[in-house]
Write a protein that binds this DNA or RNA. Structure first.
Lengths: 242, 242
DNA sequence: CGTCTAATTGAGATGTGTCAAGCGGTGTGG
DNA sequence: CCACACCGCTTGACACATCTCAATTAGACG
């Protein structure tokens, strides 16, 4: 099955205000904030370091904190009743783990580190109080949420209508646009992100290799997209024209 | 393919303030509003009557209006590049068609009437202005959106992991919980709602009929759930425990 | 009574999942 | 430094759920 979920091993670390500030400023939700407003957030944020494979929070847990990724990658996923895991998003630098779930009092998906990760976290109540004091922040938040939802709906449609190759291409497209052409992902992780199995992923991937879209020259746990243009060309639907 | 999309044939009608007010008050977004606040919305709302099969708005159109269903059923869907249609929601009395898309300036899915429909609509700008003047409304809006999203994510997971029977059962469960045990749906519509084909839907449905879960005694374009408890019992996962 | 659409049934093709086995690199402990 | 164990990767054979195509039946409606 999926990677084992270790206990949440937290480790508070002291990051300089500068580092924290930079990460928060580059979080899309806070793009519209003035410097002094972000500063106010920084004072409430605590930095935490987590080992690879740690469960940051689980589906259904009470949502106590608001999280922003400061370093590393975090998988946001849900477990299907069949036991399968479906990864919805990979969050990286500046991404929020649960901006969407702020208003609800429970997380509706789980978050697990894929690498060593630094996160900044702010107690939910403090964060909500801050948001209420900044109405325009709320509007921005709504916008970002709407965008995200539109994206996810498009993804769901793709899942239902398209075959595995298209789903994989779309996953690679999404990940590469965000993190570059060298992806630190195992085949299993990519499979979970595309709603298929490891074996099928490997077979399709080896086809794509023959076509020159990707190259497996990299180490294991790595997928290298050698021809992004060719990848896009193969994609039957262009995401983002929602 | 899907039902033909006729031109949006609009027909303004005069509903009494009373009727409009009632519909708006029972819209979940406005549950928290005071009577006089809803009244303010009513004055801006225009009632429109639409024939069956009319396209209210299409994916990608500029989002000019905010809609609430006053009578009838509306299908909210997206077309997959493969040509298939996936229905995300069936909106009924008091449901908003696009509360989610308010902040964005384009609709990210299409809305089509499944019956004769009355909708109330408010120009987007007026609605946004109203919302900005009522901060607590914004918070409620966020909550409802969060809930909806959580629900839709759960649905996506179900789509990926489960077989057609489970998806159909889940669709029936959702629809019946909302609209009662007699559903006015063709097999094709149910198929589009469950991400499968008409033929497969029919085959699975006839199994369910043998098991006594549903009965096809009804007219065509109708599905009757004869034993809701048995339906739930067959469901491998209980939705709503996100 | 004829037409149109929904519903149904059948046969065949196939994409994917499942199970099982083998390979190769990497790290760990002796 | 070597050997073992582990884990990610790869490949093969097989089963089967589901889609597709095609033809038929049955209601509804004018």
């Amino acid at each position: 099955m999926g990677g084992k979920l270790t206990e949440t091993q937290q480790h508070r670390i002291n990051l300089s205000e500068q580092v924290k500030l930079k990460a928060l400023r580059e979080t899309s939700i806070f793009k519209g904030l003035r410097a002094d407003e972000v500063q106010e957030l920084v004072t409430r944020a605590v930095a935490i370091r987590l080992p690879k494979g740690a469960l940051i929070f689980g589906e259904g847990d009470p949502s106590d904190f608001f999280y922003v990724v400061q370093e590393g990658y975090v998988r946001l996923f849900k477990n299907a009743p069949s036991g399968k895991m479906l990864t919805f998003t990979v969050a990286g630098y500046g991404d929020t783990l649960n901006g969407l779930a702020l208003s609800g009092d429970h997380y509706f998906m789980s978050a697990q580190t894929m690498t060593i990760v630094n996160v900044l976290r702010i107690p939910r109540k403090e964060f909500l109080a801050f948001v209420e004091g900044h109405p325009h922040l709320m509007i921005d938040l709504l916008k970002i949420i709407a965008e995200r939802i539109g994206h996810d709906y498009a993804r769901t449609v793709g899942f239902v209508g398209e075959d595995v190759e298209q789903r994989l291409l779309y996953s690679l497209y999404t990940l590469a646009s965000r993190f570059g052409n060298t992806l630190s992902l195992t085949r299993e992780e990519l499979a979970n992100f595309s709603g298929t199995t490891t074996e099928t992923t490997i077979r399709v991937l080896s086809n794509l290799k023959k076509s020159g879209v990707i190259s497996c020259t990299g180490n294991r746990g790595e997928i290298v997209i050698s021809d992004f243009a060719k990848l896009v060309e193969r994609l039957r639907f262009l995401p983002g024209l929602t």
